[in-house]
């Protein structure tokens, strides 16, 4: 009885507030838009039974998404922005994690705290911090003009470049932590062995260190790529109107156009795109757990 209660409470909560809402999204994505409150007309109801439901199934909103090039472009540019920022984050995050893992023992706790601190700081504020730096009269432009590298201020804010900077900056701890923990576990004598056997420092790094930190690299990449794909705050504050990302399109479809059925259809497709990296990520985590045993 006690066990039943223990299972039932969180189970019921998650069913009611996590799973059922997704079916509502699915249902509304198949509805028609209307000028009413709420602004949609359901295309079917459960009372008619499952056969009537299947007969009346209407993919109009999804067809609309394929016809309007805005949505295609938004999905593609989300994937490419998330992908490229993941690579950039890895490029900056790997040396940082490597430096931390090789730092003297007594520094490590402090370095770890310095990596975790931004993670507890408001996401919104960290994105906002870049607005003042990247704007036309911002500090970066002032600095570059002072050094004489440029004579006219560069347009950085409200371009995709600013979005890349924002994503790399806010998600860097997610990349550094798994790589650091993989490098920290590594047995240092393996490098010595490789060097004794005639490897140069660089080839020992490529042949020993990188493969041994592979699981950390993969975990870090997914931890950056998955949330970056559905990101809303960064493209809307730093990206300007020219940067298309699907999270922003969904938001505008919902709040500006008040087209709930299309917003729901956008959400359903975003979810389908996300399933692939999520499944791959889970498989990687399971492999890593088994390897650790």
């Amino acid at each position: 009885m006690r066990k039943f209660f223990l299972i039932a409470v969180p189970y019921a909560w998650l069913l009611a507030l996590f799973l059922i809402p997704f079916f509502i999204v699915l249902k509304i994505s198949l509805s028609d838009v209307a000028l009413a409150r709420p602004p949609y007309v359901p295309q079917f109801s459960w009372d008619d039974g499952i056969m009537a439901f299947l007969r009346d199934l209407d993919f109009e909103n999804f067809v609309f998404l394929t016809e309007d090039s805005l949505y295609w472009k938004a999905y593609l540019s989300s994937v490419s922005i998330a992908g490229l920022s993941t690579i950039l984050t890895l490029t900056i995050g790997y040396p940082l994690a490597y430096g931390m893992a090789r730092a003297p023992e007594e520094w490590r706790a402090t370095l770890m705290m310095l990596i975790i601190l931004p993670f507890w700081t408001s996401f919104l504020i960290r994105v906002y911090a870049w607005m003042g730096i990247l704007s036309q009269e911002g500090l970066l432009n002032q600095f570059l003009m002072w050094t004489g590298l440029i004579s006219e201020p560069l347009m950085i804010l409200n371009t995709p470049t600013a979005v890349y900077i924002g994503i790399v900056y806010t998600y860097l701890p997610f990349m550094v932590l798994p790589i650091y923990s993989a490098l920290d576990r590594m047995d240092g004598s393996l490098i010595e062995a490789a060097e004794d056997l005639g490897c140069s420092r660089l080839s020992a790094f490529w042949l020993v260190t990188v493969p041994l930190s592979r699981n950390g690299i993969i975990a870090g990449c997914f931890l950056v790529f998955i949330p970056a794909l559905g990101e809303f705050v960064i493209p809307s504050l730093l990206g300007g109107s020219g940067t298309l990302m699907i999270g922003k399109v969904l938001w505008e479809e919902f709040f500006s156009n008040r087209d709930w059925p299309v917003a729901s259809a956008v959400a359903v497709i975003l979810l389908l795109i996300l399933v692939i990296p999520i499944v791959l990520f889970q498989r990687n985590q399971q492999d890593a757990e088994e390897a650790a045993k």
Binding site: F18, I20, P21, I24, G230, F232, G247, L250, F281
Partner: peptide
């Protein structure tokens, strides 16, 4: 259901819950 919300984009969670509440 425990692990899915960790990777769910906020825009989807928000939309889904709003539609439930309405």
């Amino acid at each position: 259901m425990i692990y899915a919300p960790l990777v769910m984009p906020d825009v989807i969670t928000g939309l889904a819950l709003l539609l439930l509440f309405i």
